[in-house]
Amino acid sequence: MIEESNLTAKRIHEYLEHGNRFDKRDPEEYREIIIECGISKKSEGSAKVKIGKTEVWVGVKMEVAEPYPDSPDKGNLMVTAELTPLSHPKYEYGPPKFDAIELGRLVDRGIRESRYIDLNKLCITEGEKVWQVFVDVYSINDEGNLLDAAFIAAIAALKDTKVPFYDKKEEKIDYEKPSKEKLPLTENEPFNFSVYLIGDKFIMDPTQDEESASDGRLVLALTPTKPISICSMQKSGEFEISEVKFSEILDSVEKVHKTIFPRVQKLIKSSVKNGK
């Protein structure tokens, strides 16, 4: 079993030496992306995203809560991810393990640091009551690059979100009352790139086998300013990276962002429209 996967990893390295991948994609090429919003009626907003055979579902729920002491006039954001045993035999039940915690934190950081959600507008009474936005991620089928899929699904679900009706006098939320109030979002829509390092090459949108064969990944969230800004980043895994390689990756994500970001934006837009 171990020998077999070592062989696969070796092959992936050999292929990449010539710029090739098993499924004939270019190193920076994504698989087909499918987005569907409004997949769960009880959520405030929801979306499922498929990248190739990888599938992730995200739902947004909102509650009224106390603000954090250091941001009394801002709404709260909380991202939780579950890597479900339904989606791959390697996942197990029990308290969240590092992979799930990291995934939630990376999605959280990209959304938070981009200031994509206008949290100031989610304050109800300063210091007392604010909206709490829960973004919950569930893996349905993990065939690699769960993080980018989860990120796109989170953005799509936020765009699909309607703020529920809150009765200030009664201090109660009426989830059943239809709402047209959209979540306050800004222009800074983040897009996440997980760049996987394999030997001295790097690829985007890895399959499960490619992920296992990699040394680690560099995760970057970009916002569409001019020029492009990087709003969060994390090197994840035990590997070394030269400054030259690092610049190459930055150039590459900036280049790929130009085509994939408008494409994904368009997909989300038509799906949000279809869902309503």
Partner: peptide, 18 residues
Amino acid sequence: VNYQMMSFSVSERIRPGP
């Protein structure tokens, strides 16, 4: 068998976990 509801499957969010 393991049965689980997604947190956003009902009006009041369900805390993840059993």
